[in-house]
Lab assay of single mutants.
Amino acid sequence: MDVFMKGLSKAKEGVVAAAEKTKQGVAEAAGKTKEGVLYVGSKTKEGVVHGVATVAEKTKEQVTNVGGAVVTGVTAVAQKTVEGAGSIAAATGFVKKDQLGKNEEGAPQEGILEDMPVDPDNEAYEMPSEEGYQDYEPEA
């Protein structure tokens, strides 16, 4: 019985440690998101679009440190934060509304985080759909 109880105690310690790591990862992701939003706020009209992409990228980098179902929630929060940063930029006159959601080359930025393969159960990952990809044929 002692062996059984000791095993359960060790398992509990492992769960607590994993929860603490997840909590730490979420806190880091939130900190990076805040950094990115402050970065966007300090940019001029020309830099705002690039700044919004930076927020998304920093958040995406930190999301990889967070495991399990938390990833889905962090990704949703990050996307809403990026959308909010863009709205703030438009409201303050840093950028025109028609410039939001495009990178410096004018290509749409939507789907940055949505296409990231995420499995809350950590069982399997699927690649994003290939609808947006084109076949590449090298020139002879």
Score class of each variant (00 low, 15 high):
K32V: 09
S87V: 13
K6L: 07
G132S: 03
G25M: 12
V55Y: 13
A53T: 15
G73I: 07
G7P: 01
E131D: 12
S129N: 04
K6Y: 02
Y133V: 04
F4Q: 00
A19K: 02
V15E: 00
A140G: 10
A53N: 11
K21M: 12
T72Q: 10
V63W: 15
T81A: 14
K45H: 02
T59R: 01
Y39I: 08
E139R: 08
K58I: 14
L8G: 00
G132Q: 12
E61N: 05
V71D: 01
K43S: 03
A124W: 12
V74I: 03
G7F: 05
K80S: 07
V95Q: 09
V3F: 05
K43E: 01
G47T: 14
T22V: 07
V77W: 15
A17L: 08
V63H: 01
P120C: 06
M5T: 01
D2H: 07
K21P: 00
G36F: 05
D115P: 04
P117I: 05
A19H: 05
G86Q: 13
A107G: 11
A90G: 01
K21A: 13
T44V: 09
K60R: 08
M127D: 05
N103I: 04
A17M: 12
V49H: 14
G84M: 15
K60G: 03
A56L: 14
K58L: 14
M5S: 03
M5A: 02
M1S: 00
V16F: 14
T72E: 15
D2F: 15
F94K: 03
S87I: 15
L38N: 04
E57S: 06
S9W: 15
G36Y: 09
A76S: 06
K80Q: 06
K102V: 11
M5K: 10
G47M: 07
A27F: 14
G7A: 04
K60W: 09
A76W: 14
S42V: 09
G7W: 14
S129H: 07
V66Y: 12
S42P: 01
K45A: 13
K32P: 01
Q109D: 09
K10M: 14
G68A: 11
A29R: 02
T59I: 06
D115M: 08
K45L: 14
Q134P: 11
G68I: 14
E13V: 03
A56N: 02
A30F: 14
V77H: 01
K58S: 06
P138E: 04
G7E: 04
T54D: 01
A76D: 03
G68Y: 11
